[in-house]
Amino acid sequence: MHELAITQSMLDIVLDQAEKAEAERVLAVKLSVGELSGFVEESVQFYFNFLVKGTIAEGATVSFTMVPAKARCRNCARVFKLKEFDWSCPDCGQDSIEITDGKELFVESIEVE
């Protein structure tokens, strides 16, 4: 549900940056999205196509770079990818971990002309 609000915030950033660059058209938007952020690609694309109507970003494509969820073990400092149902360290087996990647929600770059 909240993809609508987030897509609107994302579009605000895109249009603001495009305006600063005095661009006439936005061709593409690249997003960096953490695996844990719960941000659904299809949903964003759907709302984006709706919200861009009448703006210079109309027709722009949105692409996602998924950032895998990673954590650092508090015991042995090993950094590892989080598996769905297992958040314990693959080296020492400890399950005291700190999430380092996977919560991102960034506009990475935009392509304009």
């Binding site: 987030i6 950033i13 940056q17 960034f106 506009v107 392509e111 304009v112």
Partner: peptide, 14 residues
Amino acid sequence: MEIKVLKNILSAND
């Protein structure tokens, strides 16, 4: 032209 943005989408809320 590609513009690097690197802006947190939730920054307005934050």
